Computed example of a mutant assay.
Amino acid sequence: MNKRIKLNAKEKGVLLFEGIGTFLLFQVINAIIIGSLGKNNFMGNLQNNWSLLTNKIWAVIVVLIMEVALTGIIVLSTFHKMELEQIKQILHKAAIDDQTKQVQTKVNPSLQGIIEIFNLLILNMDQHAQEQRQSEKSKDELISNVSHDIRTPLTSVIGYLGLIEGKNFNDLNQILKYTHIAYKKSLEMQNLVNSLFEFANVQHATSRLKMTKFDMAQMLDQLSADFELEANKRGMEIIVNSTPDKIMMQGDTEKLGRVFNNLIMNALKYGKGATHIWLNAEQKDQEVVVTVANNGQPIPKDSLKHVFDRFYRVEDSRSKKTGGTGLGLAIAQSMVQLHGGTIAVTSDKEKTSFISHFPISKSKD
């Protein structure tokens, strides 16, 4: 609750003295003016003309009202100056004591704007400070996660190459085994670095889209063909549905291809027990809704809200089997958002669905 500024005894005394002094000054001026008219002439005129007397009385009343009003204006002006001085002191104290604390003070409307602007500045500074703290925390987490994910394969590479360097092998086949393991671990690190670079690039403020007009239904058909062999190996069938059959929209086909590539790979890797992957596109008013779904093992409820977090994995053991970096869904989300769209996930015993909403057209950045 805003508290109104209160004057101390000294300030009240100054206002009272100024009010009385100003009013008395007006009376002195009136007396001088009346005296200059001549007392006898003034009284004689009053006796001879009653209407003149009435007019004089009204004139005196009007003059008194004007004097009171002017006195009030002068006193009010002084009061506002005192308020302004107190505001300066309050804002100075607030800036020194706690820059995140807003000032809860109520003053006259002409000065209240100063308080509101100061509070808005404090609010913006506080939000900026929170964002900066969150950014620093994210950077620390990023460094920690990258270090952790690189350390394991790097340790293996160094270990197996160290065995070869120290001639701790029996024959050529053992050398080939060591080098093959080191090569696979090197590929894991390369995959992580590439994914990290892609994530950082799409997160960058200067990231731009190369907008073109394309058919979303045709893109999904092409993706289905690209992943058909991999799906067959895993005992899955990819089914494409589009309503209508042709959906023309604008977007960066390279980035959108990466989005659905990541979502399909996610379904192939983690859709344990799935027999089908559905790629559905539907045009609704001024947006296109694309769903990538599978009928495999559902995602635990506690994990649903974290699946788009970078480096998050539903099960750590999965990453060891699949070679996942934990960045695929984070990259997909960033690219969808870059198109002005949204992406969400639902999962139950029947289906796990990643649902993306895209505007049909987006202004070129």
Rank of each mutant, 00 (worst) to 15 (best):
V288Y: 07
I73V: 12
D221A: 13
E237L: 14
I57L: 10
S186I: 03
T342A: 11
N45L: 08
F169A: 08
A94D: 06
N173A: 13
N294T: 05
K93Y: 02
T179Y: 07
L256M: 13
Q286H: 12
P109W: 07
F227L: 05
D245Q: 14
M43N: 09
V240S: 06
G340F: 09
A94M: 04
T291G: 01
S138I: 09
L329W: 06
T243Y: 10
S207P: 00
A129S: 13
D215I: 10
T322C: 04
F169V: 15
N108C: 00
T275E: 14
D245Y: 05
W278I: 04
A293L: 08
G72W: 09
F214I: 01
L329Q: 04
D302W: 04
N294C: 03
R234H: 09
I299G: 02
I150N: 05
K184Y: 10
K137F: 15
A205Y: 14
H148T: 10
D348Y: 06
K233F: 09
D140S: 11
T325A: 05
S135N: 11
M1Y: 14
S144F: 13
I5L: 15
R318S: 13
N108M: 01
I331N: 06
N294E: 07
L76F: 12
V63H: 02
L53M: 14
W50N: 07
Q174N: 02
V68D: 02
K349G: 00
T243G: 00
K139T: 04
F118E: 10
K305H: 09
V289G: 01
I299M: 04
K349T: 10
V62N: 09
R313Q: 11
K364Y: 06
R133V: 13
F260D: 05
G273K: 06
G340R: 08
I65G: 11
L176P: 00
N2D: 12
D348K: 03
M66Y: 03
S138E: 15
S242G: 05
A274G: 08
V14P: 07
I33T: 02
I164S: 06
A69I: 11
F79Q: 08
Q190K: 13
Q250I: 02
K233G: 08
G271L: 02
I20L: 15
L111Y: 06
S156A: 12
A293N: 06
I73Q: 04
A267L: 04
V202H: 03
L111G: 01
A330L: 03
K177C: 00
